[in-house]
């Protein structure tokens, strides 16, 4: 194996940045925001797997598995909420929902 961990980390960082950019830029569409979050989570998983192979320990992989389980529950709840909100307002624009205004 000749892939340096460092390059894996750079890839993960770039992926993370793209996910972040997606989440921030797509304020008009909550689905795209969620997609951005998925991208970021994948970047994290990449980091964990890279570390796991660097030190030969299974913990990183296990953690990424947990992360996947966590993501699936998060996505199911989030999408259920999107459906719920869309039913109420006929909109997926996050700027339409500001009932938490201080």
């Amino acid at each position: 194996m000749t892939i340096p961990l460092f390059h894996v980390l750079i890839l993960a960082a770039l992926l993370f940045a793209m996910g972040l950019a997606c989440t921030i830029a797509w304020r008009a569409n909550v689905i795209m925001m969620l997609i951005g979050i998925e991208i970021m989570l994948n970047a994290v998983m990449l980091t964990l797997v890279g570390g796991s192979s660097q030190w030969g320990m299974a913990d990183g992989q296990i953690f990424s598995l947990m992360l996947m389980a966590l993501t699936s529950s998060e996505v199911s709840l989030a999408l259920a909420m999107v459906v719920y909100l869309h039913r109420r307002r006929q909109s997926v624009d996050t700027d339409d929902f500001n009932s938490m205004k201080g």
């Binding site: 194996m1 894996v8 192979s53």
Partner: peptide
Amino acid sequence: LALIFYLLGAPLV
């Protein structure tokens, strides 16, 4: 990305 995981020795992931 899945292929990268495989390359990194995590077939299960």
